[in-house]
Write a protein that binds this DNA or RNA. Sequence first.
DNA 1: TATGTATATACACGTCCATGAATGTTGACG
DNA 2: CGTCAACATTCATGGACGTGTATATACATA
Lengths: 116, 116
Amino acid sequence: MNVDVFQTLADPTRRRIVEALKGGELAVNDLVARVDIQQSGVSRHLGILQEAGFVQVRAEGTKRLYSLRPEPFQELDAWVTGYRGLWEARLDRFGQALERRRKARMANPKPEEEPP
Amino acid sequence: MNVDVFQTLADPTRRRIVEALKGGELAVNDLVARVDIQQSGVSRHLGILQEAGFVQVRAEGTKRLYSLRPEPFQELDAWVTGYRGLWEARLDRFGQALERRRKARMANPKPEEEPP
DNA sequence: TATGTATATACACGTCCATGAATGTTGACG
DNA sequence: CGTCAACATTCATGGACGTGTATATACATA
């Protein structure tokens, strides 16, 4: 977790891996199929992503299933929050009303399922 | 604007410049005083930030006043929004209530001033 | 016009890093 | 135990990039 979030996300291949994992956990070979680099490269990128806290691993037989972890994204969200004033302050009243409704929708995208 | 947002933000010196500009527009020499690299380096970083859409320039005599632009931050915000489900979906009902109140506060930090 | 200040650009250098090829390791299964 | 499959690791290499030094450009002022 000592590696920088932005530096980790700077590589386009790493972002493609992260976006592929948005749909749920995937094995290394599945990722190799979606990112057009060698398997060794994917493994190294996954190591970097893991060290930065972006992914976690789960062994299942010989396969290693990688999935996303929320922490670095929260960190990124907190960082960009410090700059929201750049555009939110410029919204007029009508725009602010729209914005509030958009946020309400985002906080409640669909009726949430029951916790287990 | 053809340069990648993450790649632009990957450099720590560039982030220090951006954070220094959060307080408002600054001349190049002011930035040199806050970032411990040479003036030529600051100018080159500002060029990169400008090409990526992060900053804009305004000439005043021989000085060039740089200030932030909202677009790349909005782009970053939109990107991380695609991953908010990673932690928001895991909140239980109590946490969700807290989260909604936090968002309401953020959408309405204080009574907004009148537009000019 | 001459001089100083503010900023941008050119050039060279060293370092970091993403990639491919090859090899190592571990688990499954006959 | 031998073989195959899935994945990690090592090594070498080419390219990108941040930095400093030096130089160029533009503006202000005497």
